[in-house]
Every structure is written in C-alpha cells, then in structure tokens.
C-alpha cells in the first residue's frame, strides 16, 4: 500500500518535472523561432532590413555600439535612473500613504486630486519638468518618480485602509497609540500590498525613464533609441529595445526576489 503510494508520488513528481522542462523548451524555441524567422525574412528580402532591422546586423551593431558608443555606459545610466526612480517613488509613496492614513481629513481632502492625477498620463508632464529642473539626469529620474508614485500612494493607502478594524482594536486594548497601530499592525499587515506595488512600479519607472531620456537626449537607452531613429539607423533602435527587454526582465526578477524577501516568514 505504502509502496504504491510512493511509486505514484514519484511518477507524479516526474510528470511535473517533465512538464516544467517542456515549458522551458517551448519558451526558448519560441524566442529562437522569432529571431530565426526575422533573420530569414530579412535575408530573402521579405522585409526591408533597413526599416525592420535584422538580428545578425543587430548583433554586429551591439558590438559596434559597445566599442564605439559606450553602450555599457548608456545601459548603466538607464538602469541607474530606473532603480533610483523606483526606490524614491516606493519609499516616498509609502510615506505619503502613511500621512494620508494618519490624517483622515487630509485623505478626504486630497482624494479627488489623487484620482485625477492617477488617470492623467504622467509622461505628459515630462516636458514641463525638463523646463523646470533642467536638461539633465535629475529631470529623467523625476519623470520616473511621478509616473509611478501616484499608483504607489493609492495602492498602499488602499492596503492600509483594508487592515481589519479588530486588529487595530486589539492594539488599542493594550493601550497602544496611533503610532503603535501604524507600526505594529497597519504597516506590517500591508507589506504584501506594498510588495505587489513594487513590481508595477518598476514597469512604470521604466516608462518614465525612457520618456525622460527621449526628451533630455544626452545619455541612456532612450537617447540611443531616439538618436537612432533620427539618423535612420533602425537596427540601433531595435538593438536598444532588445537590451531594454533584457533589463526589464532582470529588474522584474529583482523585484520578485525583493518581494520574496519581504514576505519571508509569513
């Protein structure tokens, strides 16, 4: 009886493992097929490589850009701006959410403004920011911050407001102050919400950074993209976008790891 159960179990595990491998293989082949077809279509002139790019050319460009155009520097700038923007908006956003939670009057007063700001496409503000802050990296980071901070404030505040009244009452029964309620219940109970906001924030922060770089036009992948399209080197544009994809994947992984670290022990 026991033996058949363990046999069944190992078969089950094997099945799961096989499935996992199959999914991985499919994912990789999909990517390979995408680039393969792209390359082939360019070689047989089904598409114009001048306009649509060509993977082999992009690879050459990548090496060229790395050697002659300081590609690594541009990557570092974009990544740095994105992470900085993301950290600032997460920390500042959480802090603002705390203030609004603390002062119900403030929350009620500001609520309609937050809702309007939330639906406003924040990147529309980027040109103004550049005029105000200057044509520099700070303006790019600022753009990244404003694109993601409103969502952070709103989602963290929702998390705070959803914390069970009885949990708060419990802290009160021990004579806890409002600060105790915030630090002992409301904040720790909302960490899953905050962790979820992190992932969304990283994506939004990237949007802000790229739009900022389009406009500031000095360094970064956003600059390479806009410069490449101006001088009609579409393969540069494509190369930069591919690198951007890789960065996004990397940063997403980072966010997930951060999330797991936040949630450990729950």
């Amino acid at each position: 009886m026991h033996e058949t159960a363990s046999l069944e179990h190992s078969l089950y595990l094997k099945k799961i493992k096989q499935r996992k491998i199959l999914v991985k293989i499919s994912q990789i082949s999909l990517l390979a097929a995408f680039f393969g077809i792209w390359e082939a279509a360019a070689v047989i002139k089904l598409i114009d490589p001048f306009i649509f790019g060509q993977p082999s050319q992009m690879f050459k460009d990548m090496i060229f850009l790395a050697k002659e155009f300081n590609l690594l520097f541009h990557i570092r700038v974009t990544l740095g701006e994105c992470i900085l923007g993301f950290l600032i908006s997460t920390i500042l956003g959480t802090f603002i959410a705390m203030l609004l939670w603390w002062n119900d009057f403030l929350q009620k007063t500001l609520n309609p403004y937050l809702v309007v700001l939330n639906s406003l496409p924040k990147t529309a503000l980027a040109p103004i920011l550049i005029v105000w802050i200057g044509n520099n990296v700070r303006a790019v980071i600022f753009t990244a911050v404003i694109t993601s901070i409103i969502v952070t404030v709103l989602s963290v505040l929702t998390g705070f407001n959803e914390v069970s009244k009885d949990k708060i009452k419990l802290v009160r029964t021990f004579g806890g102050t409002k600060l105790d309620v915030l630090l002992k219940v409301v904040f720790p109970a909302s960490i899953p919400t905050i962790a979820n906001a992190l992932d969304i924030n990283i994506g939004l922060s990237f949007v802000g950074v790229i739009v900022g770089e389009f406009l500031v036009a000095k360094y970064g992948l956003g600059y390479l993209i806009s410069y490449g399209s101006q001088i009609l080197r579409m393969s540069w544009v494509m190369t930069s976008i591919i690198i951007l994809c890789l960065l996004a994947a990397l940063v997403h992984r980072l966010a997930v790891a951060l999330m797991k670290a936040c949630l450990s022990g729950r």
Binding site: D166, K167, V171, F174, P188, I191, R266
Partner: peptide, 25 residues
C-alpha cells in the same frame, strides 16, 4: 480584552505575538 477572533499576527511568531501587549506597554 479578548476579541471574537484570535487576531494573531501572521508576521510574528507565537512568542512575539504573545509579547505584543508587553511591547506596546
């Protein structure tokens, strides 16, 4: 005061939960 539900905090160990009141006071 003991409430309708136990409201033990999921992010604290049993010992840390048991010390909540002492911590607040």
């Amino acid at each position: 005061y003991m409430l309708q539900q136990d409201h033990l905090f999921g992010w604290r160990t049993i010992f840390q939960n048991a010390c909540l009141g002492l911590e607040i006071q």
